[in-house]
Design a protein around this nucleic acid. Structure first.
Lengths: 151, 151
DNA sequence: CTAGAATCTGACATGGATGTCAGGGACAAG
DNA sequence: CTTGTCCCTGACATCCATGTCAGATTCTAG
């Protein structure tokens, strides 16, 4: 298939696909006239690249671990394997962190719901917010406060 | 405390702290001579900001949902609440995606271990990027699971 | 008072994936 | 052949959190 079709199938822009190739993450054969032609598996390849990019890996990092993907048997892919393990762990830590952040958001939203479901509350003087303890927790251990700016 | 101390305590650079203020995400009082001075709670605030940045939110997005953090009671933080809910969901989706990516990496590593634990394998003849069924799964798809890494 | 450390503002630099534009071929269908 | 669509290369633009540098001012300890 040609580059337009691959782009359409993967959701990547044509520009990005060329960039991936430039970074040696994706290969193509060229037609007589110089146009790129891709094997069907390229779709999966691009999907993997998108995944890795979305996980925060850079082009060079991806390039470093790809040998491990393309030829798992090669002994000299030792470094690649190492790199992959390392990135895997980094990613895992990052996930943990993101989950904590999501929890923090959930907590903040819960607090807000309390305030908004209580139609009354002339308590714009939130000097001491009611569920004090939980708010404290959300802000990572220290008291937030500061009556916000009235915009 | 002054900016240097806050930087040290949070791990953020002095440059970043000034930037946060410029983006209206962090406030400071000024000493007579114009130097920034922070309340102890600023540490928690910066931690929250770092969390949100790490979750991929931009300065403007953070600014949009902060009212919700600073004054949960304010009725006009409706938009902020909406924004927060929206970002929360985005984040949650992203986490799901990252977990899939981690699974993919685990699977790839498992495959690699098979090859390398089998000391044999003169199979450097990977002229044709070989391919196995399992590989296909990893590259294109879903199949969660994965032998957890032995750490 | 003074030296040295910390801070201030303002500006420019950076990196990295991607967007976009220009000018020129490639190629399928009529 | 002609036309319309796709593709090519190369270059420059963009976003945005940070880094970095310069020159000036403030603060602190001796």
């Amino acid at each position: 298939m040609r580059i337009g079709e691959l782009a359409e199938r993967t959701g990547a822009s044509v520009r990005s696909l060329r960039y991936y190739e430039e970074q040696r993450l994706l290969v193509s054969t060229r037609s007589a006239g110089g146009q790129r032609h891709y094997a069907p598996e390229a779709v999966g390849r691009v999907a993997l690249l998108q995944r890795l990019y979305a996980a925060g890996l850079s082009s060079t990092t991806i390039a470093e671990l790809l040998p491990c993907v393309d030829s798992p048997s090669e002994t000299n892919s030792d470094a690649a394997f190492e790199r992959m393990a390392q990135e895997r762990d980094r990613l895992s830590d990052h996930i943990t962190e993101l989950i904590r952040t999501r929890d923090a958001l959930d907590e903040l939203m819960a607090i807000n719901r309390q305030y908004r479901e209580r139609p009354r509350t002339g308590v714009s003087a939130c000097a001491v917010p009611l569920p004090g303890a939980s708010r404290r927790a959300v802000l990572s251990g220290s008291a937030p406060r500061g009556s916000a700016s009235p915009r």
